[in-house]
Nucleic acid binder design. Structure first.
Length: 307
DNA sequence: AAGCTTCCCAACCGCTCTACG
DNA sequence: GCGTAGAGCGGTTGGGAAGCT
């Protein structure tokens, strides 16, 4: 009875469009790619309709960002990329989109998958090895002068991650040693993408019609250096030294916040200087295809990509 | 060779945030 | 202020490939 009443009172079901799910076919990829390259994505919910796809907008957006977008790098992660992920993950936690901003050509999804499938296990394994070796060496004679530091240099996996939870008094060179975040690593053979290469076509169009007197970062970087280098320089200069010192006495969050502050206070570095402290991470986005402009007064920074 | 397990990764889901009317 | 839609993010899932018995 109640069933019947319910049935009668129910408003007529709105016909939900049947969206295709699952893996994308090459044909669908082509449709989406061609459409976006020609018209830009605009409103994502309208993309599948215009492109003639039986997918929802969200699915199209994801497919574009994670797979079709120009400038994506595929294949194995380099040692340097791995180190960067470990470093940033230690700082930021599971902020995959923020981490991906520092790895040109890599998507948050890719990094996340890589973390769950490989790095996390490696980390756990390294920790286990570390505790094994520590117990082994603590039971050894105290006369043995083998320090844990030496151990780290002998065992690559230990050196990379083994002292993640090392007591602070043993954290000397934590950063550069634990994560191999050395100059050498910074200047690895990681392919460098120009910032201009990094932009999607529609965003380039958007930035080119920018008529105000704002500074387009993409152009600046194109002329002088790659974004990769800028990031590496920033991390190197500010991070490796100052961060390391701070790290010894602070929690991760404190360290990160203070790092932002110190970075922001850097004089003579307009690139960093113009970024509001609180927004460094969220606004310093380059992987999502956004072109950022900086007001020449240094007061404002806005994305022009999604206009 | 067949069946089972494990691993990897593309894609989905649900949530939050923001913009807009 | 409120509701809604769109965008973005992080967690999770599912299916296929690879490895193992």
């Amino acid at each position: 009875m109640t069933e019947k009443v319910k049935m009668e009172r129910q408003p007529p079901q709105k016909e939900k469009p049947k969206y295709r799910k699952g893996l994308w076919s090459p044909e669908e990829d082509n449709k989406l790619r061609n459409h976006i390259l020609e018209y830009g994505h605009g409103c994502w919910s309208s993309v599948p309709i215009k492109a003639g796809l039986q997918r929802n907008g969200k699915s199209c957006r994801l497919r574009w960002i994670n797979y079709l977008r120009p400038g994506l790098k595929r294949g194995v992660f380099s040692k340097h990329e791995e180190d960067t992920i470990l470093t940033l993950h230690h700082m930021l936690g599971n902020k995959w989109s923020q981490i991906s901003q520092h790895l040109p050509g890599r998507t948050d999804n890719e990094i996340k998958n890589y973390w769950h499938s490989y790095l996390k296990k490696k980390l756990i394994k390294a920790k286990e090895m570390k505790s094994d070796k520590e117990s082994q060496y603590s039971s050894d004679t105290m006369g043995n002068s083998l320090s844990s530091q030496k151990l780290e240099t002998q065992d690559p996996s230990y050196g990379l991650l083994g002292n993640m939870e090392k007591p602070v008094e043993h954290s000397e060179n934590f950063f550069s040693q634990s994560y191999n975040f050395s100059n050498e690593a910074c200047q690895s053979s990681l392919p460098k993408l120009l910032f201009s290469e990094w932009l999607s076509v529609d965003n380039l169009n958007a930035s080119s019609v920018n008529s105000d007197d704002s500074l387009v970062l993409g152009n600046e970087f194109d002329q002088n250096s790659t974004f990769q280098e800028a990031i590496m320089h920033m991390l190197e200069e500010n991070f490796c030294e100052e961060y390391h010192n701070t790290l010894i006495h602070s929690s991760t969050n404190e360290v990160y916040n203070s790092q932002l502050k110190s970075t922001n206070q850097e004089d003579g570095n307009d690139f960093i200087h113009c970024i509001p402290e609180a927004d460094l991470c969220s606004n310093f986005s380059l992987t999502n295809g956004a072109t950022y402009r900086v007001d020449t007064t240094g007061k404002d920074m806005a994305s022009v990509a999604d206009d």
